[in-house]
Simulated assay, not measured.
Amino acid sequence: MKSFLSLQDDIKLASSITSVALGKFDGMHIAHNALFSCLDKSGIILSIEQDSGSLLPKKYRDFYAPNDIYNLPLDVVREKSDIEFVEFLMDILPNLEKIVVGYDFRFGKDRYYYTFDLQKCFIGEVVIVDEVFYKKLSVHSGLIKELLINGNLKQANKLLGRYYEIRGNIIKGQGIGKRELYATINIENDGFLILQEGVYAGFIQLGEQSLISPFYPAVIFVGNRLSTDKSFAIEGHLLGCELEVKDKVAGFYFAKKIRENKYFDNLADLKAQITSDINKASKILKLETCEVENG
């Protein structure tokens, strides 16, 4: 994600931008997509936020953005009045004709200013996108976070419009899986919200975010290894294939929760449970794959 302030040094590019969508955009979910659809071809997405845990960290948002996306630290505009805020945008984007915001957009000191203040100060068009609902649920990042933390992955994925993902560097695990249980790929979390502990059916993509890299069906564990070293882990076992993993990074995509995290007295009982998890995940993902293929 590029810095919005970098446009001050590229007058030609800045002058070509005629529309901007303003918001936090920490989830890149279906309500955010509603804003993006109002941009023209020369429009950009401007994410204004503080550095904090999010559904989708900044470095991964370009992949889901239909237009170029820029970041602006909240502190840069936090204290500005409505007029000062618009002047700031126009100073950087001199040919700005349209601003797109959500119905609940607030800005300025103590979030004092509303969308109608933006309309009064900006001489161009202000598009205010109505609240987006999914089955009577108002779609916003806060709700999606609550759903993930409380184990409602199905609803969270519907509001996201995609599988929830966690990406990060591939790291070395305990080694117990390969020797006595099932081999796993382990990753460290690169700033994503941790969903509820447990075992999930999902997919693993090896390497960077990509439209062409394959997604391998997997059973995924998130939580503390209660039956072994009690350390926290995000690890996945690939279903139906054995690969020599040479990639340095991977993405874990969560389709459905299978069970809660449990303690087992011995590795034999744990392996029996993992075998059952693998069988359940295989059945779930066959159905999920058919659902995706059939739209």
Rank of each mutant, 00 (worst) to 15 (best):
M1F: 06
K2H: 05
F4I: 01
F4K: 00
S6K: 01
S15Y: 00
S19P: 00
L22K: 01
D26Q: 05
H29L: 02
H29P: 02
A31H: 04
A34R: 06
C38L: 10
D40R: 00
K41Q: 01
S42M: 05
S42P: 07
I44C: 00
S47A: 10
I48T: 01
D51L: 09
D51K: 08
S52H: 12
K58D: 04
K59H: 07
K59A: 08
Y60E: 02
F63T: 04
P66Q: 01
P66S: 01
D68W: 08
D68R: 08
N71A: 11
K80Y: 11
F85Y: 06
V86G: 06
P94Y: 05
N95V: 05
L96M: 02
E97G: 00
K98H: 04
K98T: 02
K98I: 05
K98L: 04
V101H: 07
G102R: 09
G108C: 05
D110V: 09
R111S: 09
Y112H: 15
T115S: 08
D117Q: 09
Q119T: 12
F122V: 08
E125H: 12
D130A: 11
Y134N: 05
S138R: 15
H140D: 09
L143C: 06
L147H: 10
L148N: 01
I149A: 12
N150C: 05
N150L: 07
R162L: 04
Y164E: 02
E165T: 14
I170A: 03
G173M: 07
R179C: 15
T184S: 10
I185N: 07
N189F: 08
F192G: 07
L193E: 12
Q196Y: 13
E197A: 12
Y200C: 09
Q205G: 04
L206K: 04
G207Y: 13
Q209Y: 15
Y216R: 03
P217A: 04
A218P: 04
I220N: 07
I220Y: 08
D229N: 04
F232R: 02
A233S: 00
L238G: 02
L238P: 01
L239F: 08
L243S: 02
E244C: 15
K246Q: 11
Y253D: 08
K256R: 15
K257F: 11
K257W: 11
K257V: 09
N261Q: 11
K262N: 14
L267S: 11
A268S: 15
T275D: 14
S276H: 15
D277H: 12
S282T: 14
K286E: 14
T289S: 11
E291K: 14
E293W: 15
